[in-house]
């Protein structure tokens, strides 16, 4: 029960900006159904990765992770439906297709909020979960999964609006190249050198991805992929030239990679600084 309330609260906190975004309502009926289903599927895959890394509960079998992720998605959809009903965005006159679209789109973000709320407050016993045998430090793949989750949440807040399209198309290529470099430097600094509580400490490592530069590059590539996926889902890529697609992806990629950085900071918190990070939040 506490878990449920937590998940609903976290979901609402993360999802509120998008519940109050007109573009999300209008995209719900403008988007083809299969694109919404694709987004849901990708969101579920990222949720599974996130829950595997942080988890509603620790010591889970993979099957339990799958179930937890369904729960998070279900809570997201339920909360989205209730909230949209209360905000008057779903009324008796709303068509079923429209209502389902709205609930699904908003539900994605809320489900991530639910998973984060549940996951971040659960990190007391930092035993390795069932999947990462023999790797007690932050598993690079888990970190990248969480990066994808952060990227999706942040980018989803911006993707339905026209601004990334405008920024992408109106900026010249040299300016965008500067944006790429700035994004890489900022995310590298944020995660590895800003010394935030829970930031990942640099350790001499033996695996190729477990290094500040390589992780930053991989997380940026994932952020670009998430941005591209969202732009595609919201129909921004139809008829666009390659240069325009790259420009829009880079513009949205700034938001996505910041989200990816924040996600990794949160994960670092549960791995390295679990004791401190949870001290003030236990109730």
């Amino acid at each position: 029960m506490t878990d449920f309330v937590r998940a609903v609260g976290g979901g609402l906190l993360i999802g509120l900006p998008l519940l109050y975004t007109q573009e999300m309502w209008s995209h719900a009926f403008a988007l083809p159904g299969w694109k919404i289903v694709t987004l849901l599927a990708v969101a579920y895959a990222i949720l599974v990765g996130y829950n595997h890394a942080i988890g509603f509960r620790r010591d889970l079998s993979f099957r339990e992770v799958l179930i937890d992720s369904v729960e998070a998605l279900g809570i997201g959809i339920l909360v989205a439906f209730t909230a949209l009903l209360l905000l008057g965005r779903i009324e008796p006159g709303t068509s079923l297709r429209d209502a389902v679209g709205k609930v699904a789109l908003e539900g994605i973000v809320i489900s991530f909020g639910a998973a984060i709320a549940a996951g971040q407050l659960r990190a007391q016993n930092d035993e390795g979960s069932a999947g990462d045998e023999g790797n007690d430090d932050a598993d690079p793949f888990q970190r990248l999964y969480v990066a994808a989750g952060g990227a999706l949440i942040f980018a989803l807040n911006v993707a339905p609006t026209e601004e990334p399209v405008l920024i992408g198309i109106e900026s010249g290529p040299w300016l965008l190249l500067g944006v790429v470099i700035a994004t890489l430097l900022v995310t590298l600094g944020l995660v590895f050198y800003a010394d935030f509580r829970g930031g990942h400490t640099i350790t001499a490592s033996d695996t190729p991805l477990d290094h500040p530069v390589s992780e930053t590059l991989a997380a940026y590539a994932i952020s670009l992929a998430v941005s591209w996926l969202l732009l595609w889902a919201f129909g921004r890529l139809e008829g666009a030239s390659l240069a325009a697609i790259v420009a829009m992806t880079v513009a949205l990629g700034v938001v996505a990679s910041l989200g990816a950085a924040v996600g990794r900071l949160l994960l670092g918190g549960s791995e390295a600084g679990a004791g401190n990070a949870d001290g003030g939040q236990g109730s």
Partner: peptide, 21 residues
């Protein structure tokens, strides 16, 4: 696998940079 992921990431970023240049 990690090298593969890293390689794919670097290729993707280089492709983006390449188009911009």
């Amino acid at each position: 696998v990690e090298w593969l992921v890293l390689g794919a990431s670097v290729l993707a970023i280089l492709a983006v940079v390449g188009v911009l240049v």
